[in-house]
Write a protein that binds this DNA or RNA. Structure first.
Lengths: 145, 145
DNA sequence: TTGAAAACCTACCAAATCCGTAGTATAATA
DNA sequence: TATTATACTACGGATTTGGTAGGTTTTCAA
């Protein structure tokens, strides 16, 4: 498993904001309730998104969070790389601290690089807006049936 | 990181066998030396491949391991799914014990299913033979330079 | 000016997973 | 029967995961 609850919850929170923010700010309490995720745990995930300026906040009365950009301007790759730190499928690709002496003629390294590309390309091909659209169309289907 | 040393070492061991087995059996000692992996640790990885009948063994003098099939008849997906247990990128896809009550109308589930497919398709598109061929052609390049 | 609502910060913790080491038992063959 | 090799099982330290808990600070409204 490469994507932990951190990334998955972050994604669900971003989707929730996209759906419910309207013109205002959404309090975390509401997101937590709708998504059935501990508010306290979400509080730990938010600073990561915040530092990367993926969302805006105000404190105090009627405070909360909202997206910085339009939903179509976030790829899932953006959100997941930010929260997970890396999406590298193997340690060899995780940076300088994992340098391997066999790297120069490692037969498997090109494989991992290819896998890494496939993963990132896929996640960068989907935006928050895409997911919202799919969700709405599925809900529509339910009414028809 | 989704693929641990177990899967990566298993893959390197399979490649090593493919390269060095000839008509006989390759003792683990030799694989461990060439690949610079602890023999004791490899001993723990092997039973997994063994149970799945990905390799053959004989004990005792001149014993060791060899591949069951031709290198072109193993995909990397075969080997990695066997050793890692699952290549699922998220817990939600890892089987019945991780059933989620929100599953029925989870907006993100289709994303994870798509990611899972992309990963497995990629790893099933490469065989051990493919990797061997690439490796040989790279070694050839070195001679030219 | 005070109270309530909300975000912010930091410490802590149990359980699981990862990455091995170690020792003994068993089998095959010269 | 000695040697070579696999097979099995237990243990353990380090790290990651998935949170809980409690207090602090900011903002606004009554």
């Amino acid at each position: 498993m490469m994507i932990s609850t951190r990334g998955r919850y972050a994604l669900r929170m971003m989707l929730d904001l996209a759906e419910y923010q309207g013109n205002g700010y959404v309090p975390l309490k509401d997101v937590a309730r709708r998504q059935e995720i501990s508010k306290k745990y979400l509080e730990q995930i938010i600073p990561i998104l915040n530092r990367a300026e993926l969302l805006q906040t105000t404190r105090g009365y009627q405070g909360g969070y909202r997206l910085t950009r339009a939903p179509k301007d976030y790829t899932l790759g953006d959100i997941l790389r930010t929260t997970e730190g890396t999406l590298a499928p193997v340690a060899c690709l995780e940076g300088e601290q994992n340098l391997c002496t066999r790297r120069a003629d490692c037969a498997t390294l090109p494989i991992w690089e290819g896998l890494d590309k496939v993963i990132n390309d896929y996640l960068d091909s989907v935006t928050l807006q895409n997911v919202l659209d799919q969700q709405l169309s599925r809900r529509g289907d339910d009414y028809v049936i």
